[in-house]
Computed example of a mutant assay.
Amino acid sequence: MTRVAVVTGGSRGIGRAVAQRLDRDGLAVVIGYAGNDAAAQEAVASMRQARAVRADVADETAVAALFDLAEREFGGVDVVVNAAGRMTLQPVAELDLDALDRMHRTNIRGTFVVSREAARRLRSGGALINFSTSQTRLLSPAYAGYAASKAAVEALSLVLARELRGRDITVNAVAPGPTATELFLDGKDEATVERIAKLSPMERLGRPEDIAEVVAGLAGAMRWVNGQTIFTNGAAA
């Protein structure tokens, strides 16, 4: 039986690297994406057995339709990776509250909606991997709203792991450090990027593929890792 993964935020960045990594492991992959049709189709074209569905992760009807497609096309859902996210960086005193609401709608409500659907539909032996951030440790200036939203993801993931007792389903969060994606690089000049890269003793930014390797482990053989937040940052935090 082919294992099946649902990957939100799977059209670009870390989400795409995860989807491609799971595809190489032999899983059928259903990508959820917010709005970039061209990027989603490029991602699907790069994989062996994949579909793409436009879905707002905070919309429970759209998320249910994403899981419906996975079940209809491939027979069920075994792995859910919730890589969709939004980041706005401003000091607390200056943070636009509408931007805060949009960020929390995706990062908190979106994670909750996807996790709820995963809890209802994952087959025995399944895995849910949500995304946090190493900023829940670093707590750098301007990251308060973003870090707060991701701290909620860590709490949700541990509680859900405990609620799924007896079903042989793992729930974990992956917390990347600085990673070379559009989301991270946007608005940062070269000097800032170089300074941040030096935070790690590896003296480089993470790559989406670095994060995808950790997700693949949690989605596969790492069955005794459950209810954890895995900081994947090259010791930058």
Rank of each mutant, 00 (worst) to 15 (best):
2 T>R: 09
3 R>D: 12
4 V>I: 15
4 V>K: 00
9 G>S: 11
12 R>T: 14
12 R>Y: 01
14 I>F: 03
15 G>N: 01
15 G>W: 01
18 V>Y: 06
20 Q>I: 01
25 D>K: 02
26 G>M: 02
26 G>T: 08
27 L>R: 03
27 L>A: 11
27 L>I: 09
29 V>M: 05
32 G>P: 08
32 G>K: 00
33 Y>R: 03
33 Y>F: 15
35 G>D: 06
35 G>M: 14
36 N>D: 15
36 N>G: 10
37 D>Q: 13
37 D>S: 11
38 A>C: 07
41 Q>S: 12
43 A>T: 15
44 V>I: 05
46 S>N: 08
49 Q>P: 02
49 Q>L: 09
50 A>I: 10
51 R>S: 13
52 A>H: 03
53 V>M: 11
54 R>I: 00
57 V>Y: 00
57 V>P: 00
58 A>G: 15
60 E>R: 14
61 T>Q: 11
62 A>Y: 05
63 V>C: 06
64 A>R: 11
65 A>Y: 02
65 A>R: 12
67 F>H: 11
67 F>L: 15
70 A>F: 10
72 R>S: 15
75 G>I: 11
76 G>H: 12
77 V>F: 12
79 V>L: 07
85 G>M: 09
86 R>V: 01
86 R>Q: 14
87 M>P: 01
90 Q>A: 15
90 Q>K: 14
91 P>G: 14
92 V>P: 01
93 A>L: 14
98 D>R: 15
102 R>Q: 15
102 R>A: 15
103 M>H: 00
103 M>I: 04
104 H>Y: 02
105 R>A: 05
107 N>C: 08
107 N>T: 06
108 I>D: 08
110 G>E: 04
110 G>H: 02
112 F>Q: 08
115 S>T: 14
122 L>H: 06
128 L>N: 00
128 L>D: 07
129 I>M: 03
130 N>P: 11
130 N>Q: 13
137 R>A: 10
137 R>T: 11
142 A>H: 09
146 Y>M: 02
149 S>C: 08
150 K>E: 04
151 A>V: 13
152 A>P: 11
153 V>F: 06
153 V>M: 04
155 A>I: 09
158 L>W: 10
161 A>F: 08
162 R>V: 04
162 R>M: 03
164 L>H: 08
164 L>K: 07
165 R>W: 07
165 R>F: 12
168 D>G: 04
171 V>L: 05
172 N>P: 04
173 A>G: 01
177 G>V: 07
177 G>Q: 09
179 T>L: 01
181 T>K: 13
182 E>F: 03
183 L>P: 10
185 L>V: 02
186 D>Q: 14
186 D>I: 00
191 A>K: 10
193 V>F: 02
196 I>S: 05
199 L>S: 07
200 S>P: 13
202 M>T: 04
203 E>P: 00
203 E>I: 02
206 G>A: 10
207 R>S: 02
209 E>R: 01
210 D>V: 07
211 I>G: 05
212 A>S: 10
214 V>I: 12
215 V>Q: 04
217 G>P: 09
220 G>T: 01
221 A>Y: 11
221 A>H: 14
228 Q>H: 13
229 T>W: 09
229 T>I: 12
230 I>S: 02
230 I>F: 04
230 I>N: 08
234 G>M: 04
235 A>Q: 09
236 A>P: 01
237 A>P: 00
